[in-house]
Write a protein that binds this DNA or RNA. Sequence first.
DNA 1: ATAGGGTTAG
Length: 700
Amino acid sequence: MRRVLSLTSPRFHLVPLINLSCSYTTTPASVLLSAEGKTLSGTATIQGLLIKNGMLHIPGNGHKLMDSYIKSGGLVEARRAFDEMSSRHVVTWNSMVSACVRHGKSEEAIRLYGRMLREGVFPDEYTFSRVFGVLSDLGLALEGRKVHGTAVVLGLDFRNLFVGSALVDMYAKSGNMEDARLVADRVVEEDVVLITSLIVGYARNGRDADAVCAFRDMMSKGIGANEYTFASTLISCGRISNVDAGKSIHALTFKSGFVSFVEPQTSLLTMYLKFGMVDDSVEVFACLDDPNVVTWTSLINGMARNGREVTAISYFQEMLRRSMNPNSHTLSSIIQACSSMAMLEIGIQIHGLSVKSGWSRNLYIGAAFIDLYGKCGIAEMARSVFDEFKVKDVVSINSMIHCYAINGLGAEALHLYGRMKQLSIDPDNVTFLNILLACSNACLVEEGRRVFAELRERPHLVVTDDHYACFADLLGKSGRLEEAEALVLEMRPEDVVLWRVLLNACQIHDKVEMAERIIDRVRELVPRDGWSHVVMSNMYASSCKWDKVTEMRSILKETGLKKDRAMSWVHVNREVHTFFASDLSHPDTPEILVTLEELIQRTRSLGYVPNFKYVYQHIEHKKQEELLYYHSEKLAIAFALYRTRGNSSSIRILKNLRTCGDCHAWIKLVSLVIQRTIIVRDVKRYHHFLNGSCSCGDIW
DNA sequence: ATAGGGTTAG
């Protein structure tokens, strides 16, 4: 049994305002201008003295004054001093440009560059390295190329490493790795920063293998990597799952003495989490003296991705306990952890926390909450989060459509899709996938067909195997098996996933003969496909062809497929209780069995008859009945009811496999008997049971 | 007198 600790209320600490004061001084102005530890008011005092003594126009003093303002953080004052100068050296221009950049005034920096040219001042290497950086930050790729041209015309020294690395960075950030590489190769002297820019460029353009290559090149040339290089390269190793490279670069990090640097260590941790090597990442984390928010976030996110959602939550709590403020990345990661385990109560707490800390307007967070409520089976709450957003982007709409899709609300999904067109937001690949899923889960065949046709008419969108699988699933589930088969044969006959979809449809509609034809196809593509043989075996069992079952099982043995043990889990009072099929190890088992017996009696009186079609073992009926009664979801429901009797709230069950037909029919009647909503999330979709019926319309 | 690159989420 896994337990989830309750979350203590997090405390956010305000950073106290630092009281900056400066003391009055009588030291001569010219000395003061070059003194360290400048303050704004101190500089103003000096400016007064300079003016009073007529010293402001002495060459160099104007620049010193401006510099002094820059160093004390007074950009406006610095700019005024700059504007009042009668003549300005290129260094003065550069300093002013730099100051603007540091204060985030990118456009202002560009304007200064233009004014500089108009006033006939020649920009130098300092100017250009800054300007290239600004242009790439602003995403002005075309302008960047023009300025590069200007620099060529002015005969700038491109062997200058600062110019070179700024250019590499600029081209890389605009996605132009070809030119980035050209520039890098022209710089004669090889340098860590320059090559790091190249490596980072490859990484951000999805060319992680090239990034690792560039790193290797760099090593072979004897250029020492530093913490920046390691930070980026390790991430690339993680993303392409290159464990060998990752491990040897880890060793290098250690040898080069970067064990105490947070950023490369965070990358190391992220890398191991991407590899699925959770223990190694925990070890890296344990060695860090001072993990920052990013480190914590990476750890939390990685844990959740590796199926350790509860651990992720513990780390989140630990982070709060250590007065570390979560940011939007942290929150969206922890919300995801809650979503995948349908931990609604904790999710709601995180929601409160997000509102309090001002993150609730963030689109990532919003999409994460929509996903959370969707995965907890509460579409209305997802919708209210969605409606709170004034500005909607394609991702939040996709999340909302997905929520409708998994909850079987096809009409709502289609309606939102229609509204998307009104808002003139372009649907993307994910939108189409979610809409098709929505049609599939609601068995909206004609609508699905229309959407699929629409997708094919959009040349800029790629129709993926997932789209085909979803559409084929819709056709198959709704009984149009021949049409589905024709589609697969015509479009993607080599894709085994699609044949599996068809096999699933055969199972739903008890088409044994067609299934036999299809599994032959599967065998041509994958000779020993475990999953397909499980389906075949179950189908033969349902029609009592026990010799065929034996045959399938012997093939299954050869495939080496380990069937997941059927399990369900249920949340009661902030605890997660897990039940396996026929698992009577829970401490409350006596009470569970009493409750279960009572439920079975009451449902039987309403017409429930155990359906032995879903027992895949050739044993006597009495034993078959017991197997059915002890299906994990039945145990979980009995337990939840026992623990929350008299309560009217809904019961939420999660399952790792598909819900069987017997349980499905039974739970429908249970919902009638106990007059409560029962939400079952199985591996394929959601089932909302209420008043004796299910939202899936009995096809799933 | 001035200048460069990195780690977390859909």
